[in-house]
């Protein structure tokens, strides 16, 4: 029972994990991205279409990454180059993503592909309880583990990561140290967007190998909330994503068991928890526990007079 639940937790949490990691990369560089939901949909459709056309899952994942990256360019252009309002630009990106995927996805509705399959890691997958959930999964899940570690390493052990974090904390300080602030922020936004796209692709290539309109169903918004919950740390993003995966898995389980509680109430649970998490994180934020980048949401203009 626990094994099955844990397995469902990881599978439900992974798309949110990718999306959260992508959003963290954005926000660490100081750019708020509320376009996560739209980027996930773009990734989901591009991933599905890529695999459908080529028959290769790798092509699908790459298509998702680059399609979302291209869409992220819009947000990067508006917020970094034009120093526009990050909130409005992000919301527009989400609506754009919903609309464009509904339009171009019509031909994909009903199409089928061969999705990701489980690949057991010899030895580790035999571990009791956790073995099946963590080491008998598909390749994208293994990739997500790698990404969590790689991102933490990138932030805290490389000069690029330091430059990116400084650009997000105090862009003027980064500038006077010779860091190209705009370029750094631009790259962070588009690569982060690409990672979000992979989260979308997980939905259409692994969770349910098909294209359904608006199939991200609010997961992008959960990711936005999780960034704060995770205090901009990739490890805590993993914990947060699995927390939500767990809630999703549990409510599905309850439904399958045929409880008398309305399915609508159960489906509401993850979103209810999102609000709860935001309240708790905000309280922690006020107590100064958070690592919110100081320059978050602020456009940087070198010649701006203070």
């Amino acid at each position: 029972m626990i094994e099955i639940l844990l397995d469902a937790t990881v599978r439900a949490g992974t798309p949110i994990l990718f999306a959260t990691l992508g959003a963290i990369l954005n926000e660490r560089a100081g750019i708020i991205n509320l376009g996560i939901e739209g980027l996930m949909l773009i990734g989901a459709l591009a991933g599905f279409a890529g695999t459908f056309a080529s028959g290769s899952l790798l092509v699908g994942v790459l298509a998702a990454f680059f399609a979302a990256l291209a869409a992220g360019c819009l947000h990067a252009f508006v917020t970094v180059q034009m120093r526009g309002n990050q909130i409005v630009s992000g919301l527009a990106l989400t609506m754009f993503g919903i609309g464009i995927t509904a339009l171009f996805g019509r031909g994909m509705v009903g199409a089928t592909i061969q999705g990701f399959e489980r690949v057991a890691i010899p030895g580790l997958s035999q571990l009791p309880i956790v073995g099946n959930a963590f080491f008998n999964q598909d390749l994208l899940i293994y990739f997500s583990f790698l990404l969590v570690v790689a991102m933490a390493f990138f932030f805290y052990r490389t000069r690029w990561g330091l430059a990116l974090r400084t650009a997000g904390e105090n862009p003027a300080a980064a500038d006077t140290c010779g860091v190209p602030v705009s370029l750094t922020r631009f790259l962070a936004v588009i690569i982060g967007s690409g990672i979000v796209g992979i989260g979308g692709a997980y939905l259409s290539l692994a969770t349910t190998p098909m294209w359904i309109e608006n199939m991200s169903a609010g997961r992008g918004w959960i990711a936005v909330a999780l960034v704060i919950f995770a205090s901009w740390s990739s490890y805590r993003a993993l914990a947060g994503a699995y927390l939500f995966g767990g809630i999703t898995a549990m409510q599905l389980r309850f439904q399958a068991m045929g409880t008398t509680v309305s399915a609508h109430i159960l489906q509401m649970l993850p979103y209810f928890f999102t609000i709860l998490v935001l309240v708790i994180s905000t309280i922690r934020l006020q107590k100064g526990a958070s690592q919110q980048p100081e320059g978050l949401g602020q456009p940087y203009d070198r010649e701006d007079r203070k």
Binding site: R159, L162, A163, T166, E169, N170, A173, C177, V179, Q291
Partner: peptide, 13 residues
């Protein structure tokens, strides 16, 4: 300076 970063990180950059 970045107040949230360590002395080391500030100088390193």
């Amino acid at each position: 300076l970045v107040p949230a970063h360590s002395v080391f990180e500030n100088i390193l950059l």
